[in-house]
Design a protein around this nucleic acid. Structure first.
Lengths: 257, 257
DNA sequence: TGTTATTAGGTACAAAGTACACATTAATAA
DNA sequence: TTATTAATGTGTACTTTGTACCTAATAACA
């Protein structure tokens, strides 16, 4: 962001964006049998945060979330779910982020500026295919946008630790009624990869044979015919989601364990 | 509300309340085997709405919801759950309600007033004991506050029809992990009353014998010893929730059906 | 070519869910 | 007082689902 753009954002942003309301997104990916989350490292603040931003005055929050995600990941059609709105009066994002702006851009934000007022933040979580997000982009106030292992989170700013915990809870609850593999895995995958995804999200271990039976019983998977080579001793089958059956099953209601 | 108070609210409300954010509550009760919801009939607007209001600038949204509920129902310790935030840019509550204020109180609200701007609304649902809400109170803009049968809803203003649908969905989902009888029924109740509650919320019929077994299997009910008289042929036992066991079971996770 | 690691599939048992029958009991009627 | 009735309380047989673990098949590897 140019310095003059920033000044305009500070002075007139409240005319374009809805003040007092923001969005934060927990973007999940799955890589090497681990659940990852997309985080931003702030300039001049010692910590990381979830990607987020403001809602345009004429914009639905869902649309804003998609727009923000596109800016970070480049992706368009992302599985996105609102899960909770964080409304603590002590949310100090504003103070801290204002301070970061001032430090970075050598501007002073007036005390009565819209950026210094309290915000309520609508929390979304997103599920994306890890391999499609090769070069996540930081925003004006952050220097790095990167995947972090969910078990090795860095210091988090604001109330974003709680946001991630709640997003994980929501994801786990969702998993029961919604097979999330479609959104987190590449088009083709082995049964074991799908099982590892479930195990990672649910933070447990599952019986291989029974997992297989249950998932195939849902009738939402189909064999691709192809089999990967070079790794396992017996080459596993590759599966993909049968989108028709998947949509049909979702309507009738799916239940996993 | 006095006319001068109102003028103050219009002119200075934005200093006390957080603009652009509101709260709406779907308050559920259970009476005569029917699920009821608390609605407000507006003055000079042809329709009803959910109870709602604004958040104080220093107040958590959950606290605001409790405060607003107390004003309507008189109740203090209400089971309250945030379920969704409604953020459509076309939400016309503000325009309509401003018009209602102007019509009722013969004041004019300036175009740039905070009350005429878009709001994002945090949706809560509440579960209350019907018999404890004997005299629900309308607010300044409404003439009646009353229980309405969930199957016989009147014309609803704004996007409150959608809000109710979503609240019902959330309540149904909640019922699986959270026996809501504690919040919706009086202290003592028969097994059949509890069953009717479940049937009403889930909109289905359940086998009497199996429902009984399942609920008793949860170990969260206890017989009171007393039995009501005068109605049934064989007098049913009265049950109440064993709050200790209830809390314990909640921790370990409850699953219904 | 046999060994081994891994996947594919099967089976036997346990637990939970479902349908329905029967026993019990208090109000009601004869 | 006694039989009837309508509701509640309880049991049982059956079905479905879940769980543990075993065997067969197969591709990589020594």
């Amino acid at each position: 962001m140019q310095s003059q753009d920033l000044q305009h954002f500070i002075d007139h942003g409240h005319q374009v964006y809805l003040p007092h309301v923001s969005i934060d997104c927990a973007v999940f990916g799955f890589h090497e049998n681990e659940l990852k989350i997309l985080l931003l490292k702030w300039k001049h603040l010692n910590g990381w945060s979830l990607p987020g931003g403001y809602i345009l005055r004429t914009e639905h929050a869902d649309v804003a979330a998609h727009r923000l995600l596109k800016q970070r990941t480049g992706l368009d059609q992302v599985f996105l779910q609102q899960y909770h709105t964080f409304s603590g009066p002590g949310r100090n994002k504003i103070q801290d982020s204002s301070r970061a702006i001032e430090t970075n851009y050598h501007v002073v934000i007036p005390e009565d500026n819209w950026l210094k007022e309290r915000v309520v933040s609508i929390g979304y979580y997103a599920l994306v295919e890890y391999s499609k997000v090769t070069n996540p982009q930081p925003d004006a106030l952050t220097e790095t946008c990167a995947w972090c292992d969910i078990h090795e989170l860095p210091t988090l700013l604001f109330d974003h630790q709680e946001m991630i915990s709640e997003a994980l809870k929501a994801l786990r609850a969702q998993l029961i009624h919604h097979p999330v593999g479609l959104n987190l895995l590449p088009k083709e995958f082995t049964m074991l990869e799908l099982q590892r995804l479930y195990e990672t999200i649910l933070d447990t271990t599952l019986d291989r044979a029974n997992f297989r039976k249950k998932l195939l019983g849902l009738k939402i998977l189909k064999k691709t015919g192809e089999r990967p080579s070079g790794k396992a001793h017996k080459t596993p089958h590759l599966y993909s989601f049968d989108k028709r059956q998947y949509a049909k099953a979702l309507k009738n209601g799916i239940s996993f364990s």
